[in-house]
Design a protein around this nucleic acid. Structure first.
Length: 969
RNA sequence: ACCCGGGUGGUGGAACUGGUAGACACGCAGGACUUAAAAUCCUGUUCGCAGUAAUGCGAGUGACGGUUCAAUUCCGUUCCCGGGUACCA
C-alpha cells in the first residue's frame, strides 16, 4: 500500500469538517473543564492575488502550536477571519466599477479554499469579517464608548464623559468656574468636552494625498510619499476624528514590561512613543544690547519670554543661541525692524519647501537671525534668537536652547553662522565636533561647576523650579492618531452633525450600515465618497469613514463570542479566554495595529468592559518569505553590412555571458560579441558586417517554469505568445537564469502558489517543508528545491507501517530498549522544540527518529502510535490516517500526549578515547553517572588522573579531540 | 547618523547555561536494484597536504586582538548584510 496523500488528505478534510472536530466551546467560567489557550494569527486582508507561499508560514506555525496545546490538554481557541475593509478593494472598485463587497466576498472565498487545503484547525464558525454589518456594528459601538469617555489625569484612566460633566457642573475646571460652565451655551460646552473625549474631532493638519483623494495616517506616509502608490502628500487643514492615544503613552510604555514581545519589537514601540524627560524653561527677552533700535517688546504685548524644551538642562551655561521653529507664533512679534526683511524672506523660503524636500535635505543648514535677544537666567548672558527649519513646531515648545559644544546640530549651525561657541566640558570638546557626552565634568557653569553632567541634570531642574522659570517636563514624540479617512470602504461613523455639534447615534440605531454607492470617487472638497449621497448628507451624517485599524483593534475579542448580537463580547467569554496567549504575525505592524489594539484594550479595561489591559501576552514575529526571481537576458543587436544595410537580430542569451550587474552595452570582441556575430552569420549568410549596437535587457521569467536556475525552454516558448519564436544561446545545452531576491509579487513572476505544491506533494509535506526552511522568525527567500526531502521522509514514515508487498507490518510486540530510547529522545526533543517555536529543528528531529526506527526495523505498534501523536501538529493528515489504521477511533487530537520517561534516555556507560601526552592511546568505558572508568589498568602520567584512580572521583572530565585535557576534582 | 538583528560548507540551516563545529535536508559524486526510467537503498561530500588504503597532519564559524585548559558561544576594535527610526532638542 502506497502513501496516497491525495486520497488521505481529502478524506480527513471532509471527515474533520463533518464531525466538527475543530469546534471550540466556551465553557462556563465557574466550571471550566480544561485550561484555556488562545493562539491567534494576525488576520489577513483578503487581497485579489490570493495566498502565496509566504502567507501560510505564520499560519502553519500557529496551527502546529494550537494542535500541540490541544494534545497537551488545553481548550484551544484558534480562529481565523478577515480584515476586509480597506483601500485596495476600493481602488479596484474605482478602476473596474465592481462593488467592494462583491470583490471582497469573492477574495475571501478564494482565501478560505486555499487555507482549507493546508489543513488548518480553525473553527470557521467563529470567523469574523470586519466589513460585515454584524461585526462593524460593534466597531461603531466601541467608537461611541471612546467618544463618550475622557482620560482622567488623576486616576490615569478612561472614565465616562458624564463624570467630567458632573465635575464641571460642580466645580468647573482650572480654566473656568462652575458658574461660567452653566453660563456657556450647549455648543460651547460641547466644544470644551470634545477636547477631552478619547475619540474627538478637531481641525488639524492632516496628510492629504491628492492622488488617492484621502487623508493618511503618519505611519502610512513614507518620506513625504504615500506608502501605497508613492504619491505626494501635503499638509491640509480639515475636520478630522482622532483617538487620544497620547493620553495612554505612559501606560503603553509601562505595559511593554509585562508582555513577551521581542526586544526589537518593544524597542520599535518605545521609539515610536518617543518618551523623553527634561525640562521646560523660560528665557526672558531683553532689548538688543548691541543696538539702539527700539525693542518690539513693549509692555503689555505679553511677549516676555521664550519657552524652550530641553533634555539637557545641565548644559544651561553652554547656551549660545536660541532657535525657534519658523512657524513659532513669537516669530512675528519679536523680529526687529532691521531683520524683518530677512526673516520674511526666510519664512517665504521655508513655506516654499515641501515636507519632502525638507526631509531629503536634512544636512542643509538654513536659518535667520530675528534681531531679538534673550537672557540666560543664570548668568545674564545675552543670547541671540534665531529661527531655523531644523527646529520642529510640533515637538516640545517649538523652541530650543542651542548648546553647540554638546549637540551636533547646534554645532553645525553655530559654525555655519559663525556664532561663538562656549565650551563647558573642557577637554571633552575639541572644537572640531560636538560631544554629546553626559560623563564630563562641567566647567564655566556657575553653580554647576564640578558636577558630572548626568548628576547636574536634576540639580539644574531643581534650581529652575525654585526660581519659578520652568519645570520638569516629559515629552512624547507620538501624536494622537488620525481616525477618519475620506473613503468609502470602511465603517461609517455613528455621528450626526447638528449645528456643528457631534451627536452620537443611539445604540439601538446601530449598525449604521454603509450605503450603496454608484461612484467611489472622492466627494466635494476632499470629503469622502459618502458625501456624494444626497440622503446621507441631508441627514447631516459624518461623511468620512473609519481607518483600517478600527476593526482590527478589537477583533481578537470578537472571536471569543462571535455571534453575540447583544454585546461586542460577553464578559463571561472574555473572562474565560482572556489574553491572547500567543499572537503571530509580521513585524510590519509593530507601531500601527499593535499600538492601537493595545490602546483600545486599555480603554475597554478602564471602562470595565474586559478584565485585562494588555491584549497579547506573547508575540511571535514570523519572517517574510521573499521571492527568488529568475531572469532571462534578451539581446538586441544591430549590425551594418558594407553597403550600409541594417542587419538586426534579437535572441536570448544565457547568464554565463551576461552578468545581470554588467552594463547594458557590450564590446563586439567579447564572448557575447562573438555569439552575436554567429547569429548574424546565420541570419545573413555570407555577408561582411560591422556590429554597431548590442543591448541587453533583463526580463523576469516565471519561477514556475525554471528548475533551480535552469530554464524550461519549451515552457518558456509557450508562456507568452511573443516568445514562441525566441532563439536561445545555450551553455552546455542548458539555459541558466539570473537570480535575485525581491519581494514576492505577481508582477515579478516570482510567486509560488501553495495550491500547486499541495497538489504535487500534499499538505503535510508542504506544512513540514515551510517549517523546515528555517526559523519562523527569519526572513528568507522561497526555494522549492528541498521539498523532496520532506516528501521522502513522509513516505519513509509510511513504510514503517506498510510494506508494498506485505501490507501492514506492525506488531503488538513489546518494544526493545533501543526502540524506547529513540521514542523518548524524540518526545523530549519535539516537546521542547515545539514549545520554543523551533519548528525547523523539530522537523529534523522527526527525520532522525524515523531514520533510526527504520534502521532498527521497528514495527512495534506501541512505539509507532506515540510517534504519530507527536507528529499530528506537523503533519495532521498522515498522522490521523495511520492512527486510525492502527485501529483507533475518534480523532488523534484527543489522544493522550506521550509522557517522557527519562529512564530510557540514560546511558549506562560510554566509550571514551583517551590519549595522554600524545603517547598512550586507548579507549575506556566509563559509567556515565559517576564517570568512573571500568577499565582496570591504565598507565597514566597525568597527576590528576592518578588521583582519580586512587579513588577521588572527578566532578568533570574534559575530553577534546580524544585527548583528556582536564579533570576537575 | 542612531537603535536593534545577523555574518558558520556548493545551498537552506544545526550546535543546550563555553566542552570533539558542520546535525538534518538539498545539491553533487560513486555504487546497488532495473532491459531502461521512475522509485528505493547504500557510500562519500568543510578546505588543504600526505598516503593505494584504513588513516594521519594542518587550517577553519566575516576580519583582527583579548579572557580561558577550552570560544561559533564571553569581552574589545573593525568590516559587511538585513530591519527600524530619522533634524524629536
Amino acid at each position: 500500500m502506497e502513501y496516497n496523500f491525495r486520497e488521505i488528505e481529502q478524506k480527513w478534510r471532509e471527515s474533520w469538517k463533518a464531525n466538527k472536530v475543530y469546534k471550540v466551546d466556551n465553557p462556563l467560567v465557574s466550571a471550566p473543564l480544561k485550561p484555556k489557550f488562545y493562539v491567534l494569527d494576525m488576520f489577513p486582508y483578503p487581497s485579489g492575488a490570493g495566498l502565496h507561499v509566504g502567507h501560510p508560514l505564520g499560519y502553519i506555525a500557529s496551527d502546529i502550536y494550537s494542535r500541540y496545546k490541544r494534545l497537551k490538554g488545553f481548550n484551544v481557541l484558534h480562529p481565523m477571519g478577515f480584515d476586509s475593509f480597506g483601500l485596495p478593494a476600493e481602488q479596484y472598485a474605482i478602476e473596474t466599477g465592481q462593488h467592494p463587497a462583491t470583490t471582497t466576498e469573492k477574495n475571501i472565498a478564494t482565501f478560505k479554499a486555499q487555507l482549507n487545503k493546508i489543513g488548518f484547525c480553525y473553527d470557521w464558525e467563529r470567523e469574523v469579517r470586519t466589513s460585515d454589518a454584524s461585526y462593524y456594528k460593534w466597531t461603531q459601538w466601541l467608537f461611541l464608548q471612546l467618544f463618550n469617555s475622557y482620560f482622567c489625569n488623576t486616576q490615569k484612566k478612561a472614565r465616562p464623559i458624564t463624570e467630567l460633566i458632573k465635575k464641571y457642573e460642580r466645580e468647573g475646571s482650572k480654566d473656568f468656574t462652575a458658574t461660567s460652565w452653566h453660563g456657556y451655551t450647549k455648543k460651547e460646552q460641547q466644544e470644551i468636552l470634545m477636547k477631552r473625549r478619547l475619540a474627538f474631532s478637531a481641525y488639524g493638519e492632516v496628510n492629504w494625498c491628492e492622488a488617492l483623494g484621502t487623508v493618511l495616517a503618519n505611519d502610512e506616509v513614507v518620506n513625504g510619499l504615500s506608502e501605497r502608490g508613492g504619491h505626494p502628500v501635503i499638509k491640509k487643514k480639515m475636520r478630522q476624528w482622532y483617538l487620544k492615544i497620547t493620553a495612554y503613552a505612559d501606560r503603553l510604555l509601562e505595559g511593554l514590561e509585562r508582555v513577551e514581545f521581542s526586544e526589537s519589537m518593544k524597542e520599535m514601540q518605545r521609539n515610536w512613543i518617543g518618551k523623553s524627560e527634561g525640562a521646560e524653561m523660560e528665557f526672558r527677552l531683553t532689548p538688543n544690547p548691541y543696538s539702539a533700535e527700539a525693542t518690539p517688546l513693549t509692555p503689555g504685548r505679553g511677549v516676555e519670554a521664550i519657552k524652550v524644551y530641553t533634555t539637557r538642562p545641565d548644559t544651561i551655561f553652554g547656551v549660545d543661541f536660541i532657535v525657534l521653529a519658523p512657524e513659532h507664533e513669537l516669530v512675528a512679534k519679536i523680529t526687529t525692524p532691521t531683520q524683518k526683511k530677512q526673516v520674511d524672506e526666510y519664512l517665504a523660503y521655508v513655506k516654499s519647501r515641501s515636507d519632502r524636500e525638507r526631509m531629503a535635505e536634512v544636512k542643509q543648514i538654513t536659518g535667520c537671525f530675528t534681531g531679538a535677544y534673550a537672557e540666560n537666567p543664570f548668568d545674564g548672558k545675552q543670547i541671540p534668537v534665531w529661527i531655523a527649519e531644523y527646529v520642529l513646531a510640533g515637538y516640545g515648545t517649538g523652541a530650543i536652547m542651542a548648546v553647540p559644544c554638546g549637540d551636533q546640530r547646534d554645532f553645525a549651525f553655530a559654525k555655519h553662522f559663525k556664532i561663538p561657541i562656549t565650551n563647558i566640558i573642557g577637554e571633552h570638546y575639541n572644537g572640531e565636533e560636538a560631544n554629546p557626552t553626559k560623563d564630563a565634568t562641567l566647567q564655566n557653569s556657575g553653580f554647576l561647576d564640578g558636577f558630572l553632567m548626568k548628576d547636574a541634570i536634576s540639580v539644574a531642574i531643581n534650581r529652575i523650579e525654585e526660581l519659578g522659570i520652568g519645570k520638569r517636563k516629559v515629552n512624547f514624540r507620538m501624536r494622537d492618531a488620525g481616525f477618519s479617512r475620506q473613503r468609502y470602504w470602511g465603517e461609517p461613523f455613528p455621528i450626526i452633525w447638528e449645528d456643528g455639534v457631534a451627536v452620537p447615534l443611539n445604540e439601538n440605531e446601530l449598525p449604521l450600515e454603509l450605503p450603496f454607492v454608484e461612484k467611489y470617487g472622492p466627494g466635494p472638497e476632499g470629503e469622502g465618497p459618502l458625501a456624494n449621497i444626497e440622503e446621507w448628507v441631508e441627514k447631516r451624517r459624518e461623511t468620512s469613514t473609519m481607518p483600517g485599524y478600527a476593526g482590527s483593534s478589537w477583533y481578537f475579542l470578537r472571536y471569543m463570542d462571535p455571534q453575540n448580537n447583544d454585546n461586542f463580547c460577553d464578559r463571561t467569554a472574555s473572562d474565560y479566554w482572556n489574553q491572547v496567549d500567543v499572537y503571530i504575525g509580521g513585524t510590519e505592524h509593530a507601531v500601527g495595529h499593535l499600538l492601537y489594539s493595545r490602546m483600545w484594550t486599555k480603554v475597554m479595561y478602564d471602562l470595565n468592559l474586559i478584565g485585562f489591559d494588555e491584549p497579547f501576552k506573547r508575540l511571535v514575529n514570523q519572517g517574510m518569505i521573499q521571492g527568488s526571481s529568475r531572469f532571462v537576458y534578451r539581446v538586441f543587436c544591430m549590425a551594418e553590412d558594407e553597403l550600409n544595410n541594417k542587419l538586426e537580430s534579437t535572441f536570448i542569451v544565457s547568464e554565463t555571458y551576461v552578468g545581470w550587474n554588467n552594463s547594458n552595452v557590450f564590446d563586439k570582441n567579447d564572448r557575447l560579441g562573438l555569439e552575436v556575430g554567429k547569429k548574424i552569420d546565420q541570419l545573413y549568410p555570407g555577408k561582411k558586417y560591422k556590429v554597431n549596437t548590442i543591448a541587453v535587457t533583463k526580463l523576469h521569467v516565471d519561477v514556475n517554469i525554471v528548475d533551480g536556475v535552469e530554464l524550461d525552454i519549451a515552457a518558456f516558448k509557450k508562456w507568452k505568445p511573443e516568445f514562441i519564436n525566441t532563439e536561445f544561446i545555450l551553455e552546455d545545452g542548458k539555459y541558466i537564469c539570473g537570480v535575485e531576491t525581491e519581494k514576492m509579487s505577481k508582477s515579478k513572476y516570482n510567486t509560488v502558489n501553495p495550491d500547486d505544491l499541495v497538489d504535487k506533494f500534499g499538505a503535510d509535506t508542504f506544512r513540514m517543508y515551510e517549517m523546515f526552511l528555517g526559523p519562523v522568525e527569519q526572513s528568507k527567500p522561497w526555494d522549492t528545491k528541498g521539498i523532496e526531502g520532506v516528501y521522502r521522509f513522509l513516505r519513509k514514515l509510511w513504510r514503517l507501517f506498510f510494506d508494498e508487498v506485505k501490507g501492514k507490518v506492525w506488531t503488538d510486540e513489546k518494544p526493545t530498549d533501543a526502540e524506547l530510547k529513540v521514542l523518548h529522545k524524540t518526545i523530549k526533543k519535539i516537546e521542547s522544540d515545539t514549545e520554543q517555536f523551533s519548528f525547523n529543528t523539530a522537523v529534523s528531529a522527526f527525520m532522525i527518529s524515523v531514520n533510526e526506527l527504520s534502521d532498527l526495523k521497528c514495527n512495534k505498534k506501541e512505539i509507532l502510535e506515540q510517534v504519530l501523536i507527536l507528529l499530528v501538529p506537523y503533519a495532521p493528515h498522515i498522522a490521523e490516517e495511520l492512527w486510525h489504521q492502527l485501529g483507533n477511533q475518534g480523532t488523534i487530537l484527543d489522544a493522550a500526549y506521550p509522557v517522557l520517561e527519562e529512564k530510557y534516555l540514560v546511558e549506562t556507560s560510554k566509550e571514551y578515547p583517551v590519549s595522554i601526552n600524545g603517547k598512550l592511546r586507548t579507549t575506556i568505558n566509563m559509567d556515565v553517572n559517576t564517570l568512573q572508568p571500568e577499565a582496570e589498568k591504565l598507565v597514566l602520567e597525568n597527576e590528576v588522573v592518578q588521583k582519580w584512580l586512587e579513588g577521588k572521583a572527578p566532578r568533570k572530565i574534559i575530553f577534546v579531540k580524544g585527548k583528556m585535557i582536564n579533570v576537575v576534582i
